[in-house]
Simulated scan of single mutants.
Amino acid sequence: MHGITTIRGDRGRGVIPRPTTAVTAVLARCLFRALLAITGMAGAGAALAMETGSGGPSIAISLADRRLYLTDTDGGTRSFPVAIGRPGVPIPVGDSSIQRKRRDPTWRPTANQRRDNPALPRAVPPGPNNPLGKFALDLGWPAIAIHGTNDPESIGTRASGGCFRMLPEDIEAVFTAAEVGMPVRVARDSLSGGAPERPASQPVKTVPVAVPAAVKTAPSSPPPQPAVPVPPVAIAPPVPSPAPVADPRCATVTAPLRRMICDVPALALLDGRARGAQERFLAGIDDPAARAAAAYELIQEERRFHERIAALCWIRSGTEGDPAVAAAAQSCLTTALDRRLSDVAERIATLRGGTRMAGRP
């Protein structure tokens, strides 16, 4: 047989075929190629594992989307809106991780924040006035965290001091899923993939069906209906806004927050309406002692409002020097003063419940 050499055993009991040199070379090449293919498949599998599964649960934040993306252990991703740093405030970008989880955190303003606004307290304990909300996830960057907020309307805007704010229910979900050491990446670009959001419901497309001419009939006109008289609808007159009362301190005030309110007419109008509601309420109190006590409560309420909003809107000396920062601060302050009108009304209603008013027994 061609290519086969026969070798007899020592005792001649059988014939054992053995490949020649050419056949051996062919078999070696085939075996080598098979090993290469197996190695390449293993390498591709390892690369895919590194690309898709090495990170595990993680958090990504897009400054462009103003959203936080939470990847769970099963690979599913949930997204939540966040508030990011206001204009002029540096926002960390890159990779970090969760260093600590805090439930009911205490907010301690940084040295820079206290230097810019000496009226800030050294610490704010847990409660409704705490700007961190009920949950906080401290990151590897100094004084940067993912946390809740006591100002839900700021979510989705540029309003923070560099941290990432979330709605109370959203931060609770992220806090529950997060673990210390979980990687966090902050990116400037969009992470949504650019897919436009579809409306909740799509209109149903109707396809016209051709009707034979023999089947078509002229539309029948409906019989005339008697006219039904429509009764006039009474429209309630709009509730007038409280007349504004100017702040007498505007001529000499120097505090940055009060100065901004006095210098911007729209802000002064909102502040004047809240002030007018308070003064009319105090003027209607018959008992002098009760009037003084109510006035003290309102003054303390205004002071707490100023301290919180000065930090929230990042209003400090020099804010007006940067047009972009000043515009952001004024927008933030407009929202806060507009909400203050309803807060003052609620506070007055509470005080009125325990105050002797003029004309009342």
Rank of each mutant, 00 (worst) to 15 (best):
G3T: 10
D10N: 11
R11S: 11
R13C: 10
G14C: 08
P17F: 12
T21Y: 12
A22R: 12
T24E: 15
A25L: 15
A25E: 15
C30W: 09
C30E: 14
R33M: 12
L35C: 09
L36Q: 14
A42K: 00
A44L: 15
G45F: 02
L48Y: 08
I59H: 01
I59K: 02
I61G: 03
L68W: 07
T71S: 10
T77M: 04
R78M: 03
P81V: 04
P81A: 09
G88Y: 04
V89W: 01
G94C: 07
R100M: 02
R103G: 09
R103H: 12
W107T: 04
P109S: 04
R114T: 03
P126V: 06
N130L: 07
P131E: 04
A136P: 02
A136H: 02
D151A: 14
E153N: 08
S154N: 08
I155A: 05
I155R: 05
L167I: 00
P168T: 14
E169R: 15
T176N: 11
D189V: 06
S190E: 12
G194V: 09
G194K: 13
R198D: 10
P199I: 03
A200G: 08
S201N: 08
T206R: 10
V207P: 00
P208R: 09
P208M: 02
P208N: 04
V209E: 09
V211A: 10
P212W: 01
P212Y: 03
T217V: 14
P222W: 07
P224Q: 07
A227E: 13
V228S: 09
P232F: 12
V233S: 07
P240S: 15
P240V: 13
V245N: 06
P248D: 08
C250F: 06
T254G: 03
A255S: 14
L257R: 02
A268P: 01
F281M: 01
A283W: 01
A283M: 02
I285V: 15
A289Y: 07
A292H: 03
Y296V: 00
I299Q: 11
I299V: 09
Q300D: 10
E301A: 11
E302M: 04
F305N: 05
H306V: 07
H306L: 05
E307P: 00
R308N: 13
I309C: 03
I315T: 09
T319D: 07
E320G: 13
D322E: 11
P323S: 14
A324V: 15
A328D: 13
C332F: 09
L333N: 08
T335R: 15
L341S: 05
V344P: 03
V344W: 02
I348R: 04
G353Q: 13
